[in-house]
């Protein structure tokens, strides 16, 4: 269970997030949609404190913190309950695929090396990279790098995985392989919050869709509700822009 309450954040005078509240149940897949500049990535990055919210409350499981008086230890605890998959993959460049997945297990979880290794190998095999264990990121394709990124996040067994536009930097022909892995994870009941522009994917995996614009949640509901029967004018406009085919059919 993840609970964001009244999260606010400004960059200079621009209010990026205005009193946003969002709750995600265990095992739920929430997809955040919205035009660029709507604050969706910022919101996601507030959950693990890569962006510092000005005010608000974040609760994950039994842990709760007030953002206006966050201490270093709180932030660390929060981050250890989450994991993130980045748009630019952000694999550790000087470490092999295997070392990337093992790193936090060794350093953060203090897991014995043998155990960390076998878990990492198993996960990399699961995402289809059993043959690339010892390759450095620079020798992997974007799709392969992102799958390592997903394995790295999974290995930590976080309470929630945050996906920040995981396919936006990929060549079109590589998007499928990454979405497939994420879809599998979603089916296994792992809690996730996904920011994406892939509408078909959103429709397919989301238990709930949240539409954001201008730093507020405009509308939320099941994928059917939001995609088929949007209530708000802004949502309708956005969907028309992003799926022009819908217009041709009508």
């Amino acid at each position: 269970m993840i609970e964001l309450k009244r999260i606010s954040k400004s960059f200079g005078r621009h209010r990026v997030l205005q009193d946003i509240s969002l709750s995600v149940k265990t095992g739920e897949v929430v997809v955040i949609l919205g035009p660029s500049g709507s604050g969706k990535t910022t919101l996601l990055r507030c959950v693990n404190y890569l962006e510092k919210p000005a005010s608000g409350e974040i609760a994950i499981g039994d842990f709760k913190m007030d953002c206006s008086q966050a201490k270093r230890g709180d932030i660390l605890r929060l981050r250890r309950k989450t994991a993130m998959v980045f748009q630019q993959y952000n694999l550790f460049r000087h470490k092999t695929a295997l070392e990337n997945v093992m790193e936090a297990l060794l350093v953060v979880k203090k897991m014995p090396a043998a155990e960390a290794r076998s878990r990492s190998v198993a996960l990399l095999e699961k995402v289809g990279l059993g043959g690339k264990l010892d390759e450095y990121p620079s020798r992997l394709s974007g799709g392969q790098q992102q799958r390592v990124g997903i394995a790295r996040a999974l290995a930590l067994e976080p309470e929630v995985i945050l996906f920040d536009e995981p396919t936006s930097a990929l060549d079109p022909e590589l998007v499928g392989e990454v979405l497939e892995v994420i879809r599998d994870i979603a089916r296994e009941g792992i809690t996730m919050i996904v920011v994406t522009h892939e509408m078909g994917f959103a429709r397919d995996v989301a238990n709930r869709v949240v539409f954001m614009d201008g730093g507020v949640v405009v509308e939320e509901g099941t994928p059917d509700d939001v995609f088929q029967h949007p209530q708000e004018e802004r949502t309708k406009q956005f969907l028309r822009r992003i799926t022009p085919e819908a217009n041709w059919v009508i």
């Binding site: 890569l50 981050r79 993130m84 952000n90």
Partner: peptide, 14 residues
């Protein structure tokens, strides 16, 4: 790259 630090922080490193 700034993303390297972010990835480290996101995985819970001090």
């Amino acid at each position: 790259d700034r993303g390297q630090v972010e990835a480290a922080y996101a995985s819970g490193m001090t």
